[in-house]
């Protein structure tokens, strides 16, 4: 009690007023900095840019759509352990509201074009896959299949990792340019394919092609079908209504559709092509090979 004031003065001297403070910034002490990503395209872009200088983790299981992940503790702890958390933005990761993560570690890779986010008007909830019910309302979030946007996202990743490892700035820059070239190449190929046939009506099995359609000026109408599930009578009737005013000859699918769906569509004179947004890790190949395959598939729809 008697020495209270002296103790305090001593502490002041020892700690200083701001001395202690920087310790709060400490992240994980590992050999390599760690970056956690919220979907596969970000994982691919990041890995391309950082090489082996940064550890890239993607804590969401490969069998679910990362946009509708129901967070579980281990996955969240993995995100917590990262120095930087790369997010897709456009309300892609709805689970962010339900977990304990540091906002200051998060980087919204689509922030650069947030003024151009697309607001979806339809307000339907539906159920598919193991993740339960979900709704496509609010902002469209499949931003990266507009490859110009993908380049901007990759650029945001480059900036984030450069901040993390400034000494690798040049290396990251070179890698980014190579990635940018690949993405521009995809962009140019699609442009070539759709050129002069942009107005051709097209169907999408799922409303995930908004940015794609906007970028390449395509005329796409969406239904809410799942590749692995054969649509019911009501859904077919709905489709038949749509094609009356939107006479599409092709439907784009997120994944390989059920053979019965293909057959029934063909009976209506509609062909099926797959354009996989590759939100999660593909079974074969990587982002680039999947996208090249997508572009290849798209050719038949615009012949």
């Amino acid at each position: 009690m008697v020495n209270f004031k002296y103790c305090y003065l001593g502490l002041c001297l020892i700690f200083g007023i701001f001395g202690v403070v920087t310790s709060a910034e400490s992240g994980s002490k590992r050999d390599k900095p760690t970056v956690a990503v919220a979907n596969y395209p970000l994982k691919y872009f990041t890995e391309r840019i950082v090489g082996n200088h940064v550890e890239v983790i993607f804590p969401i299981p490969s069998d679910i759509d990362p946009a509708f992940w129901i967070p579980e503790p281990n996955g969240v702890l993995a995100f917590q352990s990262a120095d930087v958390i790369l997010l897709n933005g456009a309300t892609y990761s709805k689970w962010l509201d339900k977990v304990t993560l540091l906002r200051r570690k998060m980087v919204n890779t689509s922030e650069g074009f947030q003024e151009q986010y697309i607001q979806i008007q339809e307000f339907t909830t539906h159920r598919h896959g193991p993740q339960g019910k979900h709704a496509h309302a609010g902002l469209a979030f499949t931003t990266w299949i507009d490859f110009q946007q993908a380049i901007q996202q990759a650029e945001a990743i480059r900036n984030a990792v450069t901040k993390l490892l400034p000494e690798q700035e040049k290396h990251f820059g070179t890698n980014f340019l190579a990635l940018k070239t690949d993405l521009l190449n995809l962009d140019r190929r699609i442009e070539e394919i759709v050129n002069r046939r942009r107005a051709r009506p097209l169907l999408a099995s799922h409303p995930v092609y908004n940015y794609f359609a906007r970028r390449y000026g395509l005329n796409i109408r969406s239904v809410l079908w799942e590749p692995e599930i054969v649509p019911n009578a009501r859904q077919w009737a709905e489709l038949e209504n749509i094609i009356k005013e939107h006479p599409a000859k092709w439907m784009i699918w997120e994944g390989d559709p059920h053979p019965d769906s293909i057959a029934r569509l063909e009976s209506l004179g509609i062909g099926s092509v797959v354009f996989d947004p590759a939100g999660n890790v593909p079974d074969n190949g990587d982002f680039l090979s999947v996208m090249h395959q997508n572009v290849q598939n798209l050719k038949s729809a615009y012949r």
Binding site: P71, P73, V76, L77, T100
Partner: peptide
């Protein structure tokens, strides 16, 4: 145990 991960914890 572990650190907070999900809301409600």
């Amino acid at each position: 145990g572990r650190q907070l991960a999900i809301i409600g914890e």
